[in-house]
């Protein structure tokens, strides 16, 4: 029985430049702000940033895992409020947690929190999943 107010276990994803390249190739989004440091800085960004949709895809993985598989995610939304800044060497965290806000039969609504380097990167991040 899933109860309103239940907290999902926090999970940390690690994002590095290699992952940005993999996601760019898999998604077709080859915008240079996600791969080319000089270009990113030239358009006013602090450094190379992760695709907002990569952040969202990783959060999607988090909720899919909890819900028992990617087929069980029915609705998913988020606002991109701050970029995930990815250093040339090493990696940066994407730390995800969630709270059950509604549970009716098998339909469960989640409010999701996602931070990177201590900064909240998504706002009003929500999902509706069906837990079999």
């Amino acid at each position: 029985m899933i109860e309103v107010g239940a907290e999902l276990e926090e999970h940390v994803f690690w994002i590095d430049r290699d992952l940005l390249k993999k996601y760019a190739d898999a998604s077709g989004d080859q915008n240079p702000i996600h791969q080319d440091e000089e270009f990113a800085i030239s358009v006013g960004l602090p450094n190379v940033i992760a695709h907002g949709m990569l952040t969202m895809a990783l959060v999607g993985k988090y909720i899919s895992d909890w819900a028992g598989g990617p087929a069980n995610v029915k609705e998913f939304s988020a606002r991109f409020v701050k970029p995930v800044i990815v250093p040339a060497n090493g990696k940066v965290d994407l730390t995800v947690s969630a709270l059950v806000t509604e549970a009716v039969d098998k339909n469960v609504r989640l409010n999701i929190t996602a931070t990177s380097a201590g900064v909240k990167v998504l706002a009003i991040a929500k999902a509706l999943v069906v837990v079999k």
């Binding site: 994803f13 992952l19 993999k22 996601y23 190739d25 898999a26 998604s27 949709m53 990569l54 969202m56 895809a57 990783l58 999607g60 993985k61 909720i63 899919s64 598989g69 990617p70 087929a71 995610v73 998913f76």
Partner: peptide, 16 residues
């Protein structure tokens, strides 16, 4: 797409 985000279930596409 699944591999990039660490999803092992490739029977369906990831939600995004």
């Amino acid at each position: 797409f699944a591999l990039a985000i660490g999803e092992e279930d490739v029977s369906v596409a990831p939600p995004t």
